[in-house]
Simulated scan of single mutants.
Amino acid sequence: MNLKEPLWSKQTDSDGSQPPSSSSTRDPESDGAPSAATSAVEELIKSLNQQRIYREVTLALRTGLRDARAEFSFLRVRGLRFLLKSLRSIAQSDTSVYLFSLTQSIPELQVVPVLFEHSLKETVDDRVQSLDHIFSVEPMNIKSPSTDAEVALALRVLEGCCLLHPESTSLAQQHKAIPVLMNVLSTRGVLEQGACLDALISIMLDSSTNQTEFEACNGIEEVAELIRDKQVDETLRLKCGEFLLLLIGHVNGRDRSPMATIHEDVRRLLGEKSASLIWAASQFGSTLDPDQRLTALHIQARRVLESLDLY
């Protein structure tokens, strides 16, 4: 979805000049009429523009969600890619972000439930329990399992929804998001694990319930085990370092947060030197622009990795 400029927002006069006045003297009361008319036209244009963006947002969601609910993985992947592209376009405008938030109060347009009901749903045992379907006229419902690419895309879409619409974290919690994502982190490949770490940060932002569940699932231990293991892909280990920096510096910024023992847990799991470095480095970047903050995050994660004593 690409939000385009409406035709009615453009200037209709080629030169933009005002029509000449028939009199050199102006009546103050007559000057107020054009101003009021101009204001009314601007309000009309604003309203039309908002309606247009809302239609585009809803159309994009309906199109993407239709495929995201499909029985076959390749169709779900197509729908998730469309949704991810749409979310990136929505993020470029405050108006479209606001309208997207409005759509997420409509059940049939909610994105997060679809992700957990289809792409992020754990695979169940597909062994045939009965042969009744062979002797009936009703076809057997077969749904293809989620591929690695599908799971990774679903996690990216989940991340985008929670960042654009904070209330989506509550929808994710209703679908047991933390246990599902921790299962992805411990069983899937590098592609899904990296996307999973980013999604975990987004669903725990300003969500004490999800933070509590993360602690209950021993999330810090899972991440620490990955970052300590030299056999793990280095890119994933760096992502784990970035995760800990963001978790301590941004997600867990309050004194009485659900993860009050996070500093002690990191010190116990990674050692005093690494824990001190993570705590100091997690305070970075509040005055930097986004690109500089991202670069600083990468540098600090590399230093955390180098500080670990893995003997």
Results as ranks from 00 to 15, higher is better:
residue 162 C to N: 02
residue 18 Q to T: 14
residue 217 C to I: 04
residue 130 S to I: 01
residue 248 I to L: 15
residue 70 A to H: 15
residue 46 K to F: 05
residue 203 I to P: 00
residue 195 A to F: 01
residue 164 L to A: 02
residue 154 A to G: 03
residue 41 V to F: 09
residue 43 E to F: 06
residue 168 S to P: 00
residue 149 A to G: 01
residue 110 Q to W: 07
residue 261 T to V: 10
residue 187 T to R: 13
residue 228 R to Y: 01
residue 82 F to S: 10
residue 249 G to C: 07
residue 275 A to W: 01
residue 235 T to I: 07
residue 129 Q to D: 10
residue 299 I to T: 13
residue 168 S to C: 06
residue 62 R to W: 03
residue 287 T to E: 13
residue 57 V to M: 11
residue 270 L to W: 06
residue 210 N to M: 03
residue 171 L to H: 03
residue 65 L to S: 03
residue 242 E to Q: 15
residue 272 E to Y: 06
residue 160 G to Q: 04
residue 21 S to T: 11
residue 113 P to D: 12
residue 185 L to F: 13
residue 163 L to S: 04
residue 196 C to D: 05
residue 250 H to R: 13
residue 160 G to F: 02
residue 161 C to T: 08
residue 13 D to Q: 10
residue 282 S to K: 06
residue 57 V to K: 04
residue 54 Y to P: 03
residue 241 G to I: 04
residue 289 D to A: 09
residue 230 K to R: 14
residue 132 D to K: 01
residue 157 V to T: 05
residue 32 G to L: 07
residue 194 G to W: 00
residue 214 F to K: 01
residue 96 S to E: 03
residue 230 K to V: 11
residue 176 K to S: 15
residue 108 E to W: 04
residue 8 W to V: 10
residue 243 F to N: 07
residue 58 T to Y: 05
residue 169 T to L: 00
residue 228 R to H: 02
residue 9 S to D: 11
residue 206 D to A: 09
residue 300 Q to L: 10
residue 92 Q to P: 02
residue 302 R to H: 09
residue 277 L to C: 02
residue 288 L to K: 14
residue 287 T to A: 13
residue 144 S to H: 05
residue 165 H to M: 04
residue 170 S to V: 07
residue 302 R to D: 09
residue 220 I to Q: 02
residue 216 A to I: 06
residue 47 S to P: 01
residue 218 N to Q: 13
